[in-house]
Design a protein around this nucleic acid. Structure first.
Lengths: 213, 213
DNA sequence: TCATCTCCTGACCGATCGGTCAAGATAGGA
DNA sequence: TCCTATCTTGACCGATCGGTCAGGAGATGA
């Protein structure tokens, strides 16, 4: 009776609401990854999720808002994973661990990686703030750790940020450019052994490239 | 009077035709890179090219056909560049040369790289044949060269294809993920010095990781 | 000069998409 | 049981987009 504020109904989290939102989010991640933001249609997302199109708009309002939720979900997952980087003092263990972690994310959540890649390629209109604040600070912190390793003689001097780009690029390529990887390897799908081989190659080359002596 | 075949008029290359097509292709590469295939509109491409929308369709027929031309242009450029890889017997010179070459392409033709990346991320519907034939054969040939290096003791044994993925990913990330790179480095635009620093880091880490001893 | 291509372009069309809406179905606490 | 908030859905709408077309403007060679 008081203020008829135009919010999405049901801010409270009913069981039905939570479950439907989760289904739609999962379908949206898949469709956004496969067709891009513009190419994805709310109708197709609804179809994949197994609900009428109006239902998608009932729960998320606009396509833009749904996309934002998908992005936030991905960023949160990745950021949680990134927290494990500096838990170790030993560069060999830390980098090896981080590379394998990122590689596992590429394998288990390729759709999320593709949505993120798409967003960045197109200028990161929704994530530019995140890149310039949170991610940059995170990278600064990691760079400090890497530089300390160099000072302590644990690794050779290296530009820490370019090293980070290197790790990100080499691990995410197995998700984002999966089709190319499969074509070159001549396989239908990457097996656990393929991923292990990738992890072995990446960690070996990078660590040998970094470690002193 | 004979066969009224429905082809695009003027297969002959008039000066006007060539110039207009070049303008439109350039604009299309930019718009496709920025907005993706679906997100790009023929109207915007026309506006960027400085011609009426009908003119775009006059020269290229469909959006799909225009996109195909843009892709072919990019693939041709990249493939021409790739030919320089095995011109050298020395792994250090060959890899260093190839990395710097790819990095220069990322710097000078980032839009093309983005269009290509977009195509691959979305499953490469137009390039799957190219990936499975031309690119795969090229990669096989390069893999043989790399394996010979290992047999000759010039480098340590390494999976040659994963090494290629590594080089591709680390160099192209400076074009495709340019926004992220700039945000982390805290700069408005990458300078020649930034690219030199990237080249130095990449070649150093990879070569130290590869070379024996 | 005339004929005949090629080029140019505003106006238009059908299809599709994001989003709305009204009305019915359902669930659950009092 | 009844009431109310939430959920569900087909039908619909305005906007936008790819593509078409008719007809005028230029160019070119005979």
């Amino acid at each position: 009776m008081s203020a008829p504020v135009k919010t999405l109904p049901g801010t409270r989290k009913s069981a039905i609401r939570q479950e439907n939102q989760a289904h739609i989010l999962l379908a949206a991640e898949k469709v956004f990854a496969e067709y891009g933001y513009k190419g994805a249609t709310t109708g197709l997302i609804a179809e994949v999720a197994g609900v009428p199109k109006a239902n998608v708009h009932y729960y998320f309002g606009t396509k833009e808002n749904l996309y934002r939720h998908v992005l936030e979900d991905i960023v949160a997952t990745w950021f949680a994973a990134a927290a494990e980087f500096d838990s170790l003092d030993d560069p060999e263990a830390a980098i090896s661990h981080y590379v394998r972690l990122k590689l596992r994310l590429s394998k288990e959540r390729p759709m999320g990686s593709k949505v993120f890649a798409n967003e960045i390629i197109h200028g990161a209109p929704h994530l530019i703030g995140y890149l310039q604040t949170t991610l940059r600070q995170w990278a600064d912190a990691k760079a400090a750790v890497i530089e300390r390793w160099a000072e302590q003689g644990k690794i050779r001097p290296v530009d820490p940020r370019h090293l980070l780009f290197m790790i990100w690029a080499t691990t995410q390529t197995y998700a984002d450019f999966g089709v190319q990887v499969r074509a070159v390897l001549g396989v239908e799908e990457l097996t656990d052994a393929d991923y292990e081989r990738a992890a072995e190659t990446l960690t070996t080359v990078i660590l040998r490239g970094l470690l002193a002596g």
